[in-house]
């Protein structure tokens, strides 16, 4: 591939980085070890290093790793408590698991050559649907039919309420879609753009115009990379806080 590139000019495969494939052999079954498995396992290892080994000393004055672990804990805990109220705190471990998985996948995906598991709708949709089902079942279990009050906007004029109910119902069912596509789309778009700029970078080898284009594209890669670091965190945050918001609706549909 490399030889071909040099011989023939610029190559663009911005989507190649998202390909899922088995690491051993050719057969792809549900249980075969793929690059998805590899990078999810790396995420798990990172979580173990940071949250288990990093906190092993239980220092009163924390070191670097323990500080980060405490920071993440405090950040998500406060988010859950602030958004869902005190009775939402018991779901904190689930939400924290989601946050940690997404954050680590996003950041690991930024390593050159890495595979970004969260750039796949299959992955984000499963998480979003899990949240959706959990929240819906919890809503009915906690509030019974009062949960339907979520769709009956009692503060609106009576005539408008049925229309609003339809809109609310649609927006409720669109939740898992937007929830999952927001994350996957953000991760995919950023990585693809970086890859496109990266494909322009070797232009200097083929054309004199490359003297202008190559530095610009390298600059653009750096800028995009910085933005992607921000996006990696923000998308993890957004997914988590939306989960909290949905959970709050399930616990207190009156709001």
């Amino acid at each position: 591939m490399a030889a071909e590139t040099e011989a023939q000019g610029l190559t663009f495969h911005p989507m190649d980085q998202f390909k899922v494939g088995p690491l051993f052999g050719d057969a792809l079954s549900a249980f075969s070890i793929t690059n998805v498995t590899l990078w999810m396992a790396i995420a798990v290892l990172c979580v173990i290093v940071l949250f288990v080994l990093g906190t092993a000393k239980r220092s009163v004055v924390p070191g670097r790793m323990q500080s980060i672990a405490e920071l993440a804990y405090g950040f998500v805990y406060k988010m859950v408590e602030d958004v869902t109220g005190h009775d939402g705190v018991k779901y904190f471990p689930y939400i924290f698991t989601l946050f940690v998985f997404i954050a680590f996948s996003n950041f690991l995906g930024l390593l050159p050559g890495a595979f970004t598991t969260t750039s796949h709708v299959a992955v984000t949709a499963v998480m979003a649907v899990m949240v959706f089902l959990f929240v819906t079942i919890l809503g009915f279990a906690k509030n019974g039919l009062h949960f339907l009050g979520l769709f009956w906007v009692s503060s609106a004029p009576l005539a408008l309420r049925p229309i609003l109910a339809v809109i609310e119902l649609i927006s409720y069912f669109v939740r898992p879609v937007s929830h999952s596509i927001r994350l996957a789309g953000n991760m995919m778009a950023g990585h693809a753009v970086i890859k496109v700029f990266a494909a322009f970078a070797p232009l200097v080898l083929f054309s004199a115009v490359g003297y202008a284009v190559t530095p610009l594209s390298i600059l653009a890669i750096v800028a995009m990379y910085a933005l992607e670091i921000l996006v990696a965190f923000i998308q993890a945050y957004v997914f988590t806080i939306l989960t909290c918001v949905y959970l709050r609706d399930a616990l207190h549909p009156g709001h």
Binding site: A30, F31, V36, H120, A122, V123
Partner: peptide, 13 residues
């Protein structure tokens, strides 16, 4: 690729 991704995601989670 969906079954593979979903399976490993669930295991990971």
């Amino acid at each position: 690729t969906f079954p593979n991704q979903i399976f490993w995601l669930l295991v990971t989670l």
